[in-house]
Amino acid sequence: MMVVRPIQEHDGPALRELARKTGPGFTSLQDNDRQVQQKLESALAAFNPDEVPEEALYLFVMEDTDSGEVVGICGVEAAVGLSDPWYNYRVGTLVHASRELKVYNQINTLTITNDHTGYSELCTLFLSPDARHSKNGSLLSKSRFMFMAEFPQRFNEHLIAEMRGYSDENGVSPFWEGLGRHFFSIDFTQADQLSSMDKVFIAELMPKNTIYTNLLPKDAQEAIGKTHEATTPARRLLENEGMRYTGYIDIFDGGPTLEARLNDIRAIQDSRYVKIHIDSTLEPEGELYLVSTTGFTDFRCCMTPLTAVGNHVVTLPAKVAEALNITEGSTVRVVPLSSGRRF
């Protein structure tokens, strides 16, 4: 059974191994010892129950309870851009018109902004290729919503998620080649690695003036707001939960930024508290639900069918209760795994 839980110090080697698999453009978890160690240290510091830091990185791992193997990672930044600047492009429109010449042209533009400063961010979602089945990706991604529903005071009322932008089979980003390279004179992979460690150079080198997209190469224009093939399922999942593309893109690869108000997320809005009854003979079948515990450092989330047996009481298989570390009568938070369903 798969369970999502807060990362712990002994998960360091597993986190490093996942970082080796992410590939180009995955800014938040790269094949870099220093970045991985900093991320682990930041996450361990965030899970302090006595403090509610303005900036915190909450990292979670997906563990196969049968084998003990860590197969996935996901995270939430409590607030972005407070210590280091948070940059993206806002896609806008300018109209150039002349009645005398009977000309009317709408031209897309890119303007560098810090509009999402202070927002919470979904980040660092990666599932090992061997574990990409049985709705494990949905569990890994949506488990974060259950944590945010339980501890809303730790997050901003606005939430964003940067989607990895399009790159070809060789890892080349046409958006970067058509725009960023002219100002940085380095490869996309190198710029992406640098941005994950230090964003100061972005402010120093990026153009401050509005950019007309029709002056970019055609393939760069077509990459604006386009999601990497491997990230498209994650984008659809978040859109089904209520997040939307509103015209902001990543300054390196042109990938879309999705956003929503926290309370408008389906899994947060529809989740409910129930008490559990444990049945060791129950064979799980039927619709899948997210089930999460109410603890902070011992937060856990898994997916399973469940059976309602009374007012705010559900029956869970013993194996699920064991994975969640809960006992008879415990209170848990539940919500249907899929959008369009209600509990």
Rank of each mutant, 00 (worst) to 15 (best):
D33E: 14
G68D: 12
L139Y: 11
T293K: 05
P233G: 05
T232R: 12
M148W: 05
H10G: 04
G286A: 10
V314D: 06
M163K: 04
A161H: 07
D168N: 15
K39P: 01
L282N: 08
M197T: 06
D31L: 11
Q153F: 08
S338G: 03
Y166M: 10
L159H: 09
N240L: 09
S292I: 02
G254S: 03
T246E: 14
E63C: 11
A323R: 04
I265N: 00
L216V: 04
S134G: 04
A161C: 15
M206A: 14
K226N: 04
G225K: 02
Q37T: 12
E150K: 10
A321H: 03
S185V: 00
N48K: 11
K226H: 09
N263G: 11
L15I: 06
E229W: 03
V70L: 11
N48Y: 03
A79G: 07
Y87T: 00
S67D: 08
I202Y: 00
A220E: 04
T331K: 12
L29R: 09
I249V: 15
R99H: 13
E9Q: 15
H158V: 01
Y104R: 08
T232S: 08
Y58R: 03
E55V: 12
P174N: 02
L94Q: 12
T124K: 06
I211Y: 02
V334E: 04
R164P: 01
R90Q: 15
V76H: 00
E328Y: 10
G137L: 06
R5K: 15
V95C: 07
T22A: 03
V95Q: 10
P305A: 02
R5S: 07
G247F: 07
